[in-house]
Design a binder for these strands. Structure first.
Length: 638
DNA sequence: TTAGGGTTAG
């Protein structure tokens, strides 16, 4: 038997590398190329059966006349099988094969092509390391680290690397590239620096790839200043920054929220003749989109078109999505038509965004037309699309149709998510159909999120069922669903409406104690309740307490003025205006404008005109020949 | 080697 094993492993591997079964055989690492003569022998190809698993392989034995078959890929498939080590042990023993490190490295490298392989790969690596007469090569370490880092298993990667360091391998450039990439992705800076030092020691010059991997690692770990330094080194060194380096830096600035610097770099690259590519544009567009700067998104898209660059489908998604969010459904549709003309395929997300935008603009016919067109083109509407349809119908008072679509989803096994449920519960609540809303809430087929709770709490509170709303608020906590600033706003508003002022104030304190940051809307609910019950000073005090916490609510004072004027409490409004000026919380000119607008909004045109034609708020009291600002109070006194 | 979308509440 041993005699028949004499055919070298190299022959088997060489044959296998040529077979179409081998995934990505063209990308096989260079150290799998000959010479293989030092490898222990494996069964010759003619033995090999088209195995389904390793047990087949083991039991096959010599069978003449069979076609050579790619058994290595079969072993790779067995990587999905947890008994790999055991099987391989048996296999190696049976054929008395000495496990070659290159084989282990190969399996580890290939295992990266399967999802969630880090655990198996790691155990395989450990198992192989324990085999008699076997020692891991540099590549084994590099590949297992690569697999571990790609699945964010950084602790294990560190463990393996500590072992690696003790072995005293000579660093080479491909190992260095891989390690820099792995450690960069994991933010393992210490390890990264070790590799860099080792490269220097062993005279391995960093290539453009090494630099770019390093840059990407630094940027992803938010070490932006270090990335800037590396960039500088590249600019002054032999290896100049290329398009990837620039794109990585731009990504860094975007992630850091420094869009201005990203744009500067974008302009700088043009000046240095490194033309921006589709990735540069897409990165910038994504950043603009995230900052809701949809206009810049559109400008970048137009620039891309002018340059004749290929426009990726995702860029269209961003531009169309941005226009839709801005309520510009027609403009969004125009870009959509460009996309179709360019031969760039649409997708469910783009259709859904357009349907939503048209529906929000009240054009339900166009929205439904797009829905049908999408279906005719073979796109299957998903849970988000149905969510948009149901929400649009609810918003437009077409609750019955929304319910029909809900039934349709149920009948056709379409997933119904919490968004669709919350839209429907909200629709029912706003239509006063509380019982149905509550029933739907209880019967929900998925986990309830804060939206679902909030819409129902709102429905209850607005329909005079404040106790039930508070019960639901408590149940929310019991069921582990986080209360949000919306929950508190709804309840504070509801409690004030029910004249349960002290409870409303307590609710505000609970919110603060929970570390939930109030916003303009929540303070509006509180201040409205307080102002209408004559406690303007208390509202001001609470507002003043927020400032030291760094919470500045831009419209707070304006909202209070509006509420007071609308309630005809002009004296209190004037007192508030004077207080705001005296505390220097707002420039007098603006307070004056706010006051005029508030009076106008409240329909009190007479006082608004009087204020406009006086020097109140900005003028000086010359009668008493003391330079003093005329108080707003004089508006109602004189 | 670098980039990745759509729906909901006060």
């Amino acid at each position: 038997m041993r005699k028949t094993l004499a055919k070298p492993f190299s022959t088997a591997i060489a044959t296998l590398l040529k077979t179409p079964y081998l995934p990505n055989s063209h990308s096989s690492p260079s150290f799998f190329k000959p010479p293989y003569s030092t490898f222990a022998p494996l069964p010759p190809p003619e033995w090999v059966h088209p195995f389904n698993d390793l047990s087949d392989l083991i039991s096959a034995g010599p069978k003449s006349g069979l076609q050579p078959s790619p058994w290595v890929p079969k072993i790779l498939l067995i990587l999905q099988n947890t008994t790999l080590e055991e099987d391989l042990s048996v296999f190696c023993q049976k054929y008395l094969i000495k496990l070659p490190p290159s084989f282990v490295a190969y399996i580890l490298k290939q295992s990266g092509q399967f999802p969630n392989r880090a655990d198996t790969a790691f155990r395989f690596f450990i198992w192989a390391g324990k085999q008699k007469g076997y020692a891991h090569s540099l590549e084994c370490y590099v590949f297992v680290i690569e697999v571990l880092c790609s699945e964010t298993n950084f602790d294990r990667a560190k463990l393996v690397f500590d072992d690696f360091k003790s072995k005293g391998f000579l660093m080479n450039s491909s190992a260095a590239n891989s390690l820099v990439r792995s450690f960069g992705n994991g933010g393992m800076v210490e390890e990264l620096l070790w590799v860099w030092r080792k490269m220097k020691e062993n005279g391995v010059e960093p290539s453009l790839y090494t630099y770019n991997f390093l840059m990407n690692g630094l940027v992803d770990s938010m070490f932006l200043e270090s990335a800037e330094k590396v960039f500088e080194v590249m600019e002054n060194g032999k290896v100049k920054p290329d398009i990837v380096t620039y794109n990585t830096m731009i990504k860094g600035y975007c992630k850091w929220g420094n869009l201005k610097k990203a744009i500067e770099m974008f302009q700088d690259m043009e000046a240095r003749n490194v033309g921006p590519d589709k990735i540069t544009f897409l990165t910038l567009m994504q950043a603009c989109y995230s900052e809701t700067d949809y206009n810049s998104c559109l400008k970048l898209y137009n620039e891309m078109r002018d340059k004749g660059l290929e426009i990726p489908s995702h860029a269209y998604s961003l531009v169309i999505g941005g226009l839709c969010k801005d309520g510009k459904s027609l403009e969004g549709y125009a870009v959509f038509e460009n996309m179709v003309t360019d031969g760039c395929g649409s997708n469910v997300a783009i259709y859904t965004a357009l349907i939503d935008a048209f529906a929000k603009n009240g054009d339900l016919e166009m929205a439904m037309g797009l829905f049908r067109r999408m279906e005719n083109e073979g796109f299957k509407p998903d849970e988000v699309t149905y969510g948009v349809i149901v929400n649009s119908l609810c918003r437009n008072g077409r609750l019955e149709e929304a319910l029909e679509w809900f039934d349709y989803c149920l009948r056709n096994n379409v997933v119904i998510n919490a968004v669709l449920y919350s839209s429907l519960i909200d629709g029912l609540g706003k239509a006063g159909r509380l019982e149905e809303a509550e029933r739907l809430f209880e019967e929900m087929g998925c986990a309830r999120d804060s939206y679902c709770y909030n819409v129902l709490i709102d429905a209850l509170a607005k329909n005079g069922k404040v106790d039930e709303a508070v019960n639901l608020f408590e149940r929310m906590e019991e069921e582990g669903c986080g209360q949000t600033v919306y929950t508190f706003t709804i309840l504070i508003d509801g409690l004030f409406r029910a004249r349960r002022n002290e409870e409303a104030l307590k609710m505000w304190d609970v919110m603060m104690d929970k570390g939930i940051t109030p916003n303009s809307a929540s303070f509006r609910a509180l201040s409205t309740g307080l102002c209408l019950s004559g406690k303007v000073a208390r509202a001001c005090k609470i507002l003043d307490e927020l400032a030291p916490m760094g919470i500045v609510l831009e419209s707070a004072f304006e909202d209070m003025m509006n509420v007071l004027c609308r309630a005809g409490r002009v004296v209190e409004a004037c007192r508030l205006a004077d207080g705001v000026v005296e505390r220097g919380r707002e420039v007098p000119g603006r307070v004056r404008t706010v006051m005029i607008n508030a009076l106008r909004k409240a329909g009190n045109d007479d006082l608004a005109m009087k204020l406009m034609h006086s020097k109140i708020g900005i003028g000086y009291d010359r009668m008493r020949s003391v330079k003093k600002r005329v108080k707003f109070r004089t508006l109602v006194v004189s």
